[in-house]
């Protein structure tokens, strides 16, 4: 059996059109993991010990069971207790929550790397807890871990095929159907592989760039982003300094 270009070109649009679904599910799950991961990070540091402890065990539990089992649980078992989710939502939530436990670990490493003096200065300045988190700690904790966070976007992307198990029709499935109908699997599956490569390679390069940039200082980054932020601040200063 040899590679049939005509067949490949013929089926390409059908397979590629499913790509939007994969991208959508990936970003949906990624958004869930970024947000829920941050919530897990906060809960785990809660001064209310039972809550911190519970969160710890939740994370351990989610991490030590396979995402596929969790997916089945959410999609097939939860309806038994009255929670029914459509397959897309079930897929997004399951993958999102699973990876939230890893993302939470990434946040934690970023937060732990912020010097203790930043917490103390925030307290000495009498900032509220929320202000300290969102204006002092996280702005320092997150930039260095952006590459690691970005990496999980790629991992998630490559993990989406497991959603086939609950019938989320995506391009792997499309490829399989085409293959079965024509008794030719070489072209459709190769196209799938190529599409994954086509999407993840540029993302990997982008993450690499981010990584280099996160090693530069704050002043260098500000200049790269353009002077507008500094400019507005500077203007306000000149006005009030003159008055």
């Amino acid at each position: 059996m040899t590679w049939d270009w005509q067949f490949a070109i013929e089926i390409f649009p059908d397979i590629a059109s499913a790509i939007w679904l994969v991208i959508g599910v990936t970003f949906g799950a990624y958004l869930v993991s970024l947000t829920f991961g941050l919530i897990l990070t906060f809960l785990r540091r809660s001064s209310f010990k039972p809550l911190a402890f519970l969160t710890y065990w939740f994370i351990e539990f989610v991490r030590s069971t396979p995402p596929l089992v969790q997916l089945f649980f959410v999609y097939f078992a939860l309806p038994a207790i009255g929670i029914t989710l459509n397959k897309y939502l079930a897929g997004i939530l399951t993958l999102g929550i699973h990876y939230a436990t890893y993302v939470s670990e990434v946040y934690r490493s970023g937060i732990d790397a912020v010097p203790k003096g930043q917490w103390e200065a925030s307290r000495a300045m009498n900032f509220t807890k929320i202000h300290t988190w969102f204006r002092v700690i996280l702005p320092q904790a997150i930039p260095p871990v952006i590459p690691m966070l970005g990496n999980y976007l790629l991992v998630l992307f490559k993990e989406t095929p497991i959603l086939m198990a609950i019938g989320v029709g995506e391009f792997l499935q499309e490829a399989q159907l085409i293959g079965a109908a024509n008794f030719r699997y070489l072209e459709p599956i190769t196209i799938v592989g190529l599409l994954f490569l086509l999407l993840s390679y540029p993302s990997a390069i982008l993450i690499n760039k981010l990584e280099k940039r996160s090693k530069l200082g704050y002043s260098a980054n500000k200049k790269q982003k353009g002077m507008s932020v500094v400019g507005t601040d500077g203007e306000a200063v000149k006005q009030s300094a003159g008055g």
Binding site: R123, A124, N126, Y218, V230
Partner: peptide, 18 residues
């Protein structure tokens, strides 16, 4: 705390702010 201010040995400025 509004009545109390402190300067630290190692400055502890906020590095991400001007």
């Amino acid at each position: 705390r509004t009545d109390i201010g402190m300067v630290f040995q190692h400055f502890n400025l906020f590095p991400h702010m001007t």
